[in-house]
Design a binder for these strands. Structure first.
Lengths: 213, 213, 213, 213
DNA sequence: CATGAATGAGGTTTCATTCAT
DNA sequence: GATGAATGAAACCTCATTCAT
């Protein structure tokens, strides 16, 4: 009990102090986790497999650096979101119209998938398998939901601006997200899949679905 | 090895002899499995939880009736597919045009989800978490892929008939499937979600995305 | 308790009344057990495998006819010993000298092995794996030991008659038995083995080892 | 599957790095396994019993140190063979003639059995119960066969040198081996047995059986 | 007599975590 | 910081036996 609490506190402090720049070990473990999750899926990504991939001699090392499996998974998602954010933001903001921005978002996601297939596969695996019941991940799900809300708001603005037609923006946004994630998931195991082409197709698809008549 | 195979043979024989309605216990276990999978997800649906839900005293009972976890999962999927088939086919075949059939398919799926949320949640959980690496489920994945191919062929026919515009039918079909499954997944844990309304929205969405200009 | 005792009593009575002629079911199960034991060995010969081989639909049938695994195994050994007795006795008694009888015994055992490889493999498997610790089989081991004692007595007589030289008859008898059983064991899995030739070699070997200088 | 393989790799590496003396725990587990196998036999030697004998709190510990039951058994055999090799080789090589060497081999085996009855009982239990069907042990059986072939070659040389008479060296070698193993097996459960005396008897027996007329 | 569902014990393995060094 | 042994829970599976039908 005491050990666990103090340990958790320590890590919390360190994590807060380290801000975005992780310690080398943590980053190494996160990278290994991404690989393993992409390979075998969220639930089969055991500490043993991750440690092996990271070149660590024991799983104790992971428990030492992360406050449990959830903490590691959170870090994986955070890491990939950071990567995606840096990649997508400029590509999206390069456009003015909402339609062009939506297209940039969809195609950007899948271009990113083409470049970092394992990263996107990993985050998709995690998010699809998250459940409300897991304590410690609930707050995390809320964050994801909030991210989605931001994009929903963009859809709404486009509708108010007359650029997009009338539709339920939440349903639309989730459909877009689901379609992208589906391609990502398949890309992880089918190297022959033309991810960028699928991105263009999806962009066309949702362009027709959203654009004013 | 040998025991497992021989056991599978035995069960196969018994299943064949049991005509259409399962042994009763089997059906009860499948029903319990559906509940548990919908609740806690594919990987956390242990024999222990399923046995408890089914009112069985031991997990050995499940191993007795099913040739391992994969066999049980296959039965779950088969059962739900049978339910869905019976529900959807008449609703789809009631329409002539491809567009109307596509709408009937999407809305039908989600009407079904409104009536049997746990059933659809369970099958979605299973299919999302299947990986090619699991021996014994590979052939099963192929079946799923074949089912999808049938629907893709419908899209192609609609295109040739001039009813649908030009698009990649595989990408379209997967997007539709992914959007439906996403709603199904959320419905399992958010009882307040208006699944039928989402169905109409998705039908509208994909109607605009597919229909000829 | 009561059920078990009465059941056991029932079987005891039936067995006693049935004398040497078993009921058809029992014989059928014993035959299947012999096959399975020869195939997979004593410990892996589960009721499930035996029932399958016997064409029975459940293992309950075996428990019904036999008072446990030990009882079945005893019956297997008894059955094979009866077979061997009928085969060997005339062949041995056809000879006068102890040396000729010993040779007839060794060669006869392996001729029998050539004709009924599964039967001999089964009994060897059982006897090799018997341990004193198993209650209910102890008395059975004593019987086996008694059988051996009879043969030892023959060796002793031959020594007193001056036909055999001086040696420890127990050690000799066990060496003979062990050598025969080793061939039997190999024959069960190596169909190419010339069992009869090995029998002649062993007969020569032990002839030289026993005969007076 | 994957986990098991990777785990095996890890252990292989560790074992290689541990020079000659094992990790200590491994040796302790092997020692406990020898005791348990000698007591209850190969198939009844469960991880639970071995862990208890080794003073371990859980069977998981054994799975941690060994890549499954087969790996542990291999280690047991290897350990005993190492012991036997060190004991027998000098005793055998102290003699010139083939006859003397054969006697030294037989008597040496049983002297060793008198000193380490459990060790020899354990290895005999394992080898007798091995079957070709067990994957992972097949290669191991081949090794055993190869060891026997070496000794068979010695018999052949003695025959060519005119020291031994004409006989099938394979049959002879197996008979010797079987006779020794039989004594070993009995010694494990009959502390009153004079193993060394039996050794001398067997040496005499096979001396008469092999020596030129 | 026969069936086959049910039971509970016991088997091996994997897992995340803790802790002494 | 780093290591890897130890732990105990939980997973799936097989087994022999019992029992209602």
């Amino acid at each position: 009990m005491q050990a666990k609490n103090s340990s958790a506190k320590q890590k919390g402090v360190r994590r807060a102090g380290a801000s975005f720049t992780e310690t080398g070990r943590r980053a190494q473990i996160v990278a290994a986790a991404i690989e393993v999750i992409a390979d075998v899926g969220y639930h089969r990504a055991s500490f043993a497999k991750i440690a092996e991939r990271a070149g660590l001699s024991s799983t104790g090392m992971i428990s030492y650096h992360f406050d449990g499996r959830d903490d590691l998974m959170r870090e994986v998602v955070t890491e990939v979101l950071r990567l995606a954010e840096g990649y997508l933001r400029p590509r999206i903001e390069a456009h003015r119209s909402y339609a062009a921005r939506l297209r940039a978002s969809i195609e950007g996601n899948l271009d990113l998938c083409a470049e970092y297939p394992r990263h996107l596969a990993a985050i998709t695996e995690i998010l699809v398998n998250l459940r409300g019941g897991e304590p410690g991940m609930v707050a995390f799900l809320d964050t994801t939901e909030a991210n989605l809300a931001v994009q929903v708001e963009q859809l709404r603005k486009a509708q108010r601006a007359g650029e997009f037609r009338d539709f339920d923006p939440w349903v639309m946004m989730r459909a877009i997200r689901a379609a992208i994630d589906d391609v990502v998931r398949r890309a992880a195991h089918d190297p022959g899949l033309d991810v960028r082409a699928a991105g263009r197709e999806l962009a066309d698809l949702f362009d027709r679905a959203t654009r004013s008549a």
